[in-house]
């Protein structure tokens, strides 16, 4: 218990001093996970919408697989991306292993199924309400997808945030493909892992507190924006 209260004090201290290293690490965390969630969303939202509207044999299987992939182990994703990006791998010539770009790719792959599966569910539910009206207006499949994606934007934001939360909190994948290089690929989670292995548990926990506070702040901001917009747009 003593360590926990010590960590709280330490966390406050770090934040109050605007510790430069902490700022850089937290900034990189936000940047890596932010880009990852953006890239993943650009693919996952249309994929979720398409899967919600499409009817083809084996659709249920695809949905089941997608839902299952929400639980992809970060370490496995990290390893796969590592093997792809390694100099000895097929994308080795890019030379981006142990860079933030590799971390973004790994996180994007990790959360793509989460955002796609959650948005598929949301859009599938709404489709039963919108279907007849949109078909009556002779909307094409593509127009239906776009109309639903835009109409459900506030609900879909929750799916995107779920992906972001998972991305910024995971350590296994970014540790492997980023290498936890000081000042280059060290993010909040790998810094926490490092301090833990150095036995500096109070500092590790303090960083954890800062990470949690950061995630909560972002979610709160998104939630406020969402409820404000929903009041305005119905």
């Amino acid at each position: 218990m003593e360590e926990i209260s010590q960590s709280m004090g330490l966390a406050m201290g770090l934040v109050r001093q605007l510790d430069q290293t902490l700022l850089a690490i937290a900034g990189l965390s936000l940047k890596v996970s932010g880009v990852a969630v953006l890239a993943a969303s650009l693919l996952a939202l249309p994929l979720g919408a398409w899967l919600a509207l499409a009817r083809f044999p084996g659709r249920q299987v695809v949905i089941a697989v997608l839902n299952g992939m929400m639980g992809l182990p970060p370490v496995v994703v990290g390893l796969l991306i590592y093997l792809l990006l390694s100099r000895a791998g097929p994308l080795g010539s890019l030379g981006i292993l142990f860079t933030p770009a590799a971390m973004m790719i790994a996180q994007a792959v990790l959360i793509l199924p989460i955002i796609a599966a959650l948005s598929r569910q949301v859009i599938d539910d709404a489709w039963s309400e919108y279907r007849e009206q949109l078909l009556s207006l002779n909307a094409t499949r593509w127009q239906c997808m776009r109309a639903l994606l835009w109409d459900l934007r506030f609900t879909l934001l929750t799916a995107v945030l779920a992906g972001f939360g998972r991305a910024i909190a995971e350590v296994g994948a970014v540790m492997i493909v980023g290498g936890n290089i000081d000042g280059v690929t060290r993010v909040m989670t790998t810094a926490i892992a490092l301090e833990t292995s150095k036995g500096d548990l109070p500092l590790a926990l303090a960083l954890g507190v800062v990470l949690i506070a950061l995630v909560i702040a972002i979610n709160t901001a998104a939630q406020l924006m969402k409820s404000y917009s929903m009041r305005r747009h119905g």
């Binding site: 940047k31 880009v35 953006l38 650009l42 770009a101 973004m104």
Partner: peptide
């Protein structure tokens, strides 16, 4: 806007390396 944001973000992220 999303595409633009992605391009910007990648643009910011990649050059340092």
């Amino acid at each position: 806007g999303g595409a633009l944001a992605l391009t910007l973000a990648l643009g910011l992220a990649v050059p340092p390396a």
